[in-house]
Amino acid sequence: MPDRTPPSAGPIIAVRDLVVGFGEKIILDGLSLDVMPGEILGFVGGSGTGKSVLTRTILGLIEKRAGRISVFGQDLDTMPEAERRKLEKRWGVMFQHGALFSSLTVAQNIQVPMREYLDLSPAMMSDLAALKIQMVGLKSDAGEKYPSELSGGMIKRAALARALALDPEIVFLDEPTSGLDPIGAAEFDSLIRTLQQTLGLTVFMVTHDLDSLASACDRIAALADRKVVAVGTLAEMVASPHPWVKSYFRGERALARLKG
């Protein structure tokens, strides 16, 4: 919501001329991207083009070779360690395969960041964990379960609940609907929409799913040739002249979806 971040502020995440590579191979070359506060940005690209690499670079899991990344208007490179810790409280990440801690129950998983960062009574923590579990649409008994006892869709929801544990301002979602059936995926899209409106989130979503792009995302950025080749609404993407974007948004599957 607007009260979380000043309305006049510029992009909440700004990436400029980013270069990332492993060994000889350059994955991202001169990539620039802005994520505006309060929006849901869908990030698309072919398999293996470096969508996850960008996310992981922003999160600081991969070293960059050149370029600048600033989050909440602060440059990540020049930020002192203590500021950086504070920043990590303000974003939440949902990994592609959940990355739930397998030896903890769902409720305990959600409480991990709370225990680390917050000063709360244990009763309040379990109450908040139960609240998050229900907010992501899981039954309340799911909190007692271990990740190995959950279905794929439930793992995604539980991972989202953990990402939301600290009421972050930015949420990174890595392929949130992959591996879900179309109904489950649609439910997940509307869940993300609802949570974004209720909690005032900014969402950065890596996805392959055309339905998600059409129904959940405010803007879409397309990655091809190691940089962002097109940014805009769905209509703007469809009109883009770039060959990869063209084949993605004007392929048979896409057309069927967009007409429907």
């Binding site: 919501m1 607007p2 009260d3 379990s126 109450d127 964990a129 139960a130 609240l131 229900q134 907010m135 309340s140 909190g143 409106q197 209720t198 909690l199 005032g200």
Partner: peptide, 18 residues
């Protein structure tokens, strides 16, 4: 309540405690 606060309060209200 501001509009966004009301939404949040609504979201929180309907849930049951552990």
């Amino acid at each position: 309540a501001r509009r966004e606060h009301a939404t949040l309060l609504d979201a929180v209200r309907t849930r049951t405690a552990v």
